[in-house]
Computed example of a mutant assay.
Amino acid sequence: MTDDSALDSFIDKWRARWPEWAVAEAFVPKEQRAVALAWAALLQELTDAAWGGTDPRPGEAKLGWWAEELQGWAQGARRHPLGAALQRRPAPWVVLAAALPALRDSRERPRDREEAFAALAPVAEAVAAVEAALFAAPDDAAAPAAIGAGLLHARLATSGEAAAPLSVLARAQAGEGATIWAAELLQYWPRRAAVSRPRALWAELAASRLRRGDAARPLPAWSALRAAWRGARRSPGAGA
């Protein structure tokens, strides 16, 4: 497999979960589109490692590998195909590497919504720092909260009820945990953060899925278009 085809395979895996992006990416400046796809695919690799499977040990090992890989990116080296699109970008890869233990530890079920956001705060701050470098995102103290909400949505979409906090399970009937957690997450969804254009689109697509009652189910094309338009309007300083 060539480097290009290997890179495409990771991007295609992300697109399979987010087919709405075929519509939404038209709102991203052309010069940012390839980087946005690679960055989204990288985040998916990291979160899948943290939360996937019933045995945490393979994911912990993979996150350890990724910590070394990201540190290598900062020194001009790369092994993973996604590095072909990202490694040369002057982003704080070491900061992201340092946040991966917090991502690993976030596999533990939180007690409540506040703890769910707090557990991912170091990761969200690192992601915000990288996105500021990749996309010239505005400096906004509210950005990590918006990113944290997106991470919690990603976990809900892939893990279902296993992502729900204990406080949600305590008041849920059997099988209702994911639905109740989706509604609570949407209720407290950050809406005022100044973030990059790609992040604004991802956030609005995720929130729109929650409004429709299923974090994992893709939006119809027209709904995706409306969501992307709303996200684009809310992202300052980036013309499409």
Rank of each mutant, 00 (worst) to 15 (best):
A77G: 10
W65R: 12
W93I: 13
R88F: 06
A61Q: 14
R88N: 13
P90C: 12
G59R: 02
W73M: 06
Q75S: 12
G59K: 00
W73P: 04
Q71M: 09
V95D: 07
R57L: 15
R88H: 11
G83I: 11
G59C: 03
P56C: 03
Q71N: 14
G53C: 01
W65F: 15
V94S: 11
A77V: 07
G64V: 09
Q71P: 00
L86Q: 01
G59T: 01
P58I: 01
R88K: 13
Q87I: 07
P58E: 02
H80I: 06
R79I: 04
V94H: 06
A85N: 07
L63N: 02
T54A: 15
H80P: 04
A84S: 14
Q71F: 02
G53P: 00
L86I: 01
Q87Y: 07
A61T: 14
Q87D: 07
A67N: 06
A91T: 13
G72I: 04
E68Y: 05
V94C: 07
R79M: 05
H80L: 08
W65K: 09
G53M: 00
G59M: 03
V95R: 11
T54Q: 09
H80R: 02
P90S: 11
K62P: 01
A84C: 10
E68C: 06
W93D: 10
P90R: 11
R88D: 14
P81G: 01
L70H: 10
V94E: 14
V94R: 05
L82V: 06
A74L: 01
R78A: 14
P92H: 06
E69W: 10
P58C: 02
P81D: 04
A91Y: 01
Q71W: 04
L70W: 10
Q87M: 13
G72M: 01
E69V: 13
R88P: 06
G64W: 07
W66Q: 03
W66Y: 02
W65T: 12
H80V: 11
A61I: 15
L82Q: 08
R78G: 10
D55L: 10
A84R: 15
A67G: 15
W73A: 08
P56V: 01
L82I: 04
H80Q: 07
P56Y: 02
G64M: 12
L63W: 03
L82D: 04
A61P: 02
A91K: 05
P90Q: 12
Q75T: 11
W66C: 02
R89H: 15
G76Q: 08
A85Y: 08
K62L: 15
P58N: 00
A74F: 00
R88C: 05
P56D: 05
L86F: 03
V94L: 09
R78L: 14
R57V: 12
E68S: 14
T54D: 15
A84H: 14
K62E: 15
H80N: 05
A85I: 08
P81H: 00
A77Y: 09
L86W: 00
E68M: 09
R89D: 07
W93P: 10
E68D: 13
A67H: 10
R89A: 15
Q75A: 15
P56T: 05
A84K: 13
L63T: 04
W93C: 11
P56H: 00
G52A: 05
L70Q: 10
V95S: 09
D55V: 12
P56I: 01
G64Y: 08
V95F: 00
A77C: 08
L82H: 05
G83C: 12
A84F: 13
W73R: 03
W65Y: 13
A84N: 10
L70I: 14
W66V: 04
P58V: 02
